[in-house]
């Protein structure tokens, strides 16, 4: 009997530990609601998922690289580059301080595609450096972070070195608009994030690239001797990441209405943090889209919720930092063999 009890106790403890991150978050949300019950509203929920949308897209990009046992520190600067370039090309024709006053009004799709192309080139370069020159991803993308920031800043300086505003309303509406669906209206951003998530889920789970990505991240030698090209896989995943960064950068500027070269600063670490909280392993080969969605959502709830109840931003940093550490410590626990 005692043995059974001890076993149950152990199982309960295991369950609690394995789900500790969710328990902590529920408690946190509980405390926020307790402090201000108005937190629990449809409007707040809409705010949270809207804000989470661009982060979701970035997280999906960087998550692929993490599954490859890599990382990407250049995400934020790629967002900045896409933001300044797209903003400068998509200003209202009537805007007094238009950077290119004589440029015809472009269909918004063209600058967006151009920015996606730009970030994809830089991201592909990351991939080439990692795959061909065997530079560790941390260093390669740290370097690329500086390069991309430099490029974005030079451009920003060249076009006037002041916040690029007066965006084409079609462009801002592209991000800020909503899709009415009966009594509720769904923000466009949420729709984009949802579609992107579905596409990336499909690639991860249903295509060769997805399978190869997990194989290369899990055991590169095994992948190589099975005829998988490691170089090709790394580059394709980098291309996918670049596309997502560019898209997210354009959405981010359209959402906020103006851009400087510093837009996106720190987004990389936010994205990586959300992804690892969502259970993607830093050592590669492990991760799921569901986990990433959860991770991103959790972070946004904390961000928004803590601000909502007026917790000092400095304390918010501490709470977020602890959550990252606890989440990964608990996650790692599952993979450590007990001796």
């Amino acid at each position: 009997m005692d043995k059974v009890k001890a076993w149950d106790k152990k199982r309960t403890l295991d369950f609690l530990l394995n789900n500790a991150i969710y328990i902590v978050l529920l408690l946190l949300v509980g405390v926020i609601i307790f402090m201000d019950s108005s937190f629990l509203s449809v409007q707040n929920f809409t705010f949270i998922i809207t804000q989470a949308s661009t982060r979701m897209i970035l997280a999906l990009g960087v998550a692929g690289l993490l599954v490859l046992a890599g990382t990407d520190l250049s995400v934020g600067r790629m967002v900045g580059l896409a933001a300044v370039v797209s903003a400068s090309l998509l200003q209202e024709p009537e805007y007094a301080r238009r950077i290119f006053p004589d440029m015809p009004q472009l269909a918004i799709i063209l600058p967006i595609l151009f920015c996606i192309l730009l970030t994809t080139i830089f991201s592909t370069l990351n991939g080439l450096i990692i795959a061909k020159l065997n530079v560790t991803p941390f260093i390669a993308t740290l370097g690329m972070q500086l390069v991309v920031y430099g490029v974005a800043s030079i451009y920003y300086d060249a076009v006037g070195a002041s916040p690029i505003a007066g965006l084409d309303p079609k462009f801002t509406k592209f991000a800020q608009g909503t899709l009415p669906l009966g009594p509720i209206s769904i923000p466009n951003l949420v729709i984009y994030a949802a579609i992107t998530t579905l596409i990336v889920w499909f690639i991860w789970n249903k295509t060769k690239l997805g399978k190869n990505m997990f194989a290369v991240g899990g055991n590169p030698e095994a992948a190589a001797v099975s005829g998988v090209s490691i170089t090709k896989t790394i580059i394709l995943v980098s291309v996918m990441a670049g596309i997502l960064y560019g898209f997210a950068g354009c959405l981010e500027v359209a959402r906020t209405g103006s851009a400087t070269n510093n837009l996106g600063n720190g987004y990389d670490l936010d994205a990586i943090a959300a992804v690892v909280v969502g259970g993607v392993s830093f050592s590669g080969g492990v991760g799921s889209i569901g986990g990433i969605v959860t991770g991103v959502f959790i972070f946004q709830v904390i961000n928004y919720g803590l601000a909502y109840v007026n917790v000092s931003p400095y304390i918010q940093y501490i709470i977020k930092g602890l959550i990252i550490i606890i989440a990964v410590a608990i996650d790692t626990r599952k993979y450590i063999k007990k001796k």
Binding site: K206, T207, K208, G210, K211, N212, F214, A215, G218, N219, E221, A222, A223, V225, S226, G227, V228, G285, V286
Partner: peptide, 25 residues
């Protein structure tokens, strides 16, 4: 043993030559 430990047996067997329809596995 050159295997991707985190994935399934069949993923390992067909690694590098997954049966697929178009781009779908």
């Amino acid at each position: 043993l050159n295997q991707v430990r985190q994935t399934r047996v069949m993923d390992n067997i067909w690694l590098g030559r997954f049966p697929s329809k178009g781009i779908v596995i």
